[in-house]
Design a protein around this nucleic acid. Sequence first.
DNA 1: TATGTTATGGAACGAATGGTTCATAACTCG
DNA 2: CGAGTTATGAACCATTCGTTCCATAACATA
Lengths: 192, 192
Amino acid sequence: MARPQVFNQQQVMAKAVECFWLKGYSETSLADLLTAMGISRSTFYNNFGDKRQLFRLCLQAYGQQTQHIIAMTLLSNKFSGLESIRQFLHLVLLAPTEEFSSRGCLLVNTLAETARVDDELNQLAKQLMQSVKLAFIQQLQKEFDQAASIRHGEWLFTQLLGWRLQTQLGIAKNILEEQIDWSLLQLKQPMK
Amino acid sequence: MARPQVFNQQQVMAKAVECFWLKGYSETSLADLLTAMGISRSTFYNNFGDKRQLFRLCLQAYGQQTQHIIAMTLLSNKFSGLESIRQFLHLVLLAPTEEFSSRGCLLVNTLAETARVDDELNQLAKQLMQSVKLAFIQQLQKEFDQAASIRHGEWLFTQLLGWRLQTQLGIAKNILEEQIDWSLLQLKQPMK
DNA sequence: TATGTTATGGAACGAATGGTTCATAACTCG
DNA sequence: CGAGTTATGAACCATTCGTTCCATAACATA
């Protein structure tokens, strides 16, 4: 008894994610969003609240994609321990095309952009990133004791942040792979 | 025969650096700068060109401060090799007060902020950061061969980026120190 | 056909942005 | 004093921003 929505909600959201992913929150204008999403101003405000609300939704959506990758690697039964972490890192850092990996990670980008400027969005991104660190630690517990797992997990997480920045600076893929291998190798060695 | 400048050029610049350091380039408004620098709009444009030009100057100034720290540690004769790198990392990551270290590094912040949005500023920040990586490699050559020095230098540089991000996320100082020690320890071990 | 929902385009809003101009005053020094 | 430089504040500009509102059209169902 009413006109149905003509646009695909998820498809339009994906376009919005791409915008924010490319240029960040504040540098993405409403005009950018509207043309990319292919909807009118009115439709935008009727369906997504406002720019800020849409960004929250985009962070959530992106976070779920990340969860999906985590499920395929860190929580999968195909790999375990350090090997699952390697698979994860390869998938997020090495597998994407140059165009994609040069965008970095929306969550990390948001962390950097909103630090000391926008507490709410910063907290949100931070919270969504936690699951990665926790999944790291969880996997490490298969090979290390509790304390070492936490220590190593946080150490790897720090490096993930560094690698994410490096991909935006255009680091060569082979160097990146070398670094990942080297870092994981360190954890394999029995050491004090 | 003419009225002298009343404000201290360097002092005012330092205030500008602080602004950009705290909130980034685009989030720092002219009003922010004027009140912090304590000068009038006219004086601002007469002496510093415009916001963009001032930011370039600030990056340069900040870069020189970094050079100073490099000189005190990486290029000093008091320490050498890995030990000088440790001193550098301690000085930039651990020594500052919470308030300072939570700002991260102006250059790294700028790298993240301007990626895929402002090529010129990104290149400038990138270029100013190079000296750190090069100084790392230079020091490592005292203990490793050419190839290993480059590999390890770039590896440490990646971690520096990660640590910089972590300080903005409020990582605890003792964990940070643990990670630094651990990373440097890896390089000390003779390993394939 | 009538009703209720969804979409559209455009106009307009207020606020904030970075930047320019100008008349005026403060000051130093020949 | 008077020439020359420096600083100031206010007014003003054009632009962009996110947001709201409204009249209108498209559409599905009862």
